[in-house]
Computed example of a mutant assay.
Amino acid sequence: MPWTALAHPPDTLPILVLALAIEAAAGYPDALYRAVGHPVTWIGRLIDALDRRLNRGSATRRKMAGIASLLILTVVVGGVALALSALAGLAGPFIGPILIGVACASLPAQRSLDEHVARVAAGLRRDGVSGGRTEVAMIVGRDPESLDEAGICRAAIESLSENFSDGIVAPAVWIGIGGLVGGALYKAINTADSMIGHRTPRHEAFGWASARVDDLVNLPASRLSAGLIIAAAACHRGASASGAWRAVRRDAGHHRSPNAGWPEAAMAGALGLRLAGPRVYGTVRVEDAWMGDGRVEAGAADVERALALYRTACGLLLALAVLAAAALLSGR
Results as ranks from 00 to 15, higher is better:
20 L>K: 01
99 L>V: 04
270 A>G: 08
205 A>R: 06
53 R>N: 03
320 L>C: 08
11 D>N: 12
176 G>S: 11
45 R>P: 02
301 A>G: 11
17 V>E: 06
215 D>G: 03
90 L>F: 03
135 E>N: 07
265 A>G: 10
11 D>W: 06
278 P>S: 02
329 L>F: 13
131 G>F: 13
53 R>C: 00
252 A>S: 11
62 R>P: 15
250 R>P: 02
232 A>V: 07
144 P>N: 02
302 D>Y: 13
290 W>N: 15
329 L>G: 00
221 A>L: 12
130 S>C: 06
264 E>R: 06
103 A>Q: 12
172 A>V: 00
35 A>I: 00
55 N>I: 12
200 T>M: 05
244 A>V: 07
19 A>F: 07
94 F>H: 11
208 W>V: 10
196 I>D: 14
92 G>M: 10
59 A>P: 12
273 L>M: 10
240 S>H: 03
102 V>H: 05
94 F>N: 01
114 D>K: 09
40 V>C: 10
316 L>F: 02
269 G>R: 01
303 V>C: 07
100 I>M: 13
224 L>R: 07
59 A>N: 14
155 A>M: 08
126 R>H: 13
267 M>L: 11
305 R>M: 10
279 R>Y: 15
71 L>C: 13
179 G>C: 07
229 I>W: 14
142 R>P: 13
260 A>G: 14
237 R>C: 08
123 G>I: 09
116 H>M: 04
159 S>L: 07
24 A>H: 05
231 A>F: 15
162 E>R: 07
66 G>Y: 04
84 L>V: 05
238 G>I: 10
145 E>Y: 03
319 A>W: 12
255 H>M: 09
217 V>W: 01
249 R>H: 01
96 G>H: 02
57 G>R: 01
244 A>M: 07
80 V>F: 03
212 R>P: 09
233 A>N: 02
307 L>P: 10
250 R>E: 01
65 A>D: 05
52 R>E: 04
100 I>C: 09
185 L>M: 13
86 A>Y: 05
78 G>P: 09
303 V>Y: 15
76 V>D: 10
216 L>I: 08
175 I>Y: 04
168 I>E: 12
132 G>R: 07
56 R>V: 00
315 G>C: 06
310 Y>N: 12
49 A>R: 10
268 A>L: 09
213 V>N: 06
304 E>V: 14
2 P>I: 14
223 R>D: 06
191 T>N: 10
308 A>L: 08
213 V>T: 15
63 K>D: 01
259 N>R: 06
91 A>S: 12
199 R>Y: 01
223 R>Q: 03
101 G>R: 11
295 R>K: 11
227 G>Y: 14
321 A>H: 06
79 G>T: 01
143 D>I: 05
217 V>D: 12
178 G>E: 14
156 A>V: 03
324 A>L: 15
3 W>I: 10
90 L>H: 03
283 T>K: 08
187 K>L: 11
98 I>R: 01
170 A>W: 14
190 N>K: 04
315 G>E: 13
172 A>W: 12
201 P>C: 11
272 G>L: 11
105 A>Q: 02
326 A>D: 04
249 R>T: 04
20 L>N: 00
142 R>T: 15
242 S>W: 07
1 M>R: 09
155 A>G: 08
296 V>Y: 01
131 G>T: 04
199 R>P: 13
18 L>W: 08
1 M>L: 15
273 L>K: 00
147 L>M: 12
184 A>V: 10
54 L>M: 12
226 A>L: 02
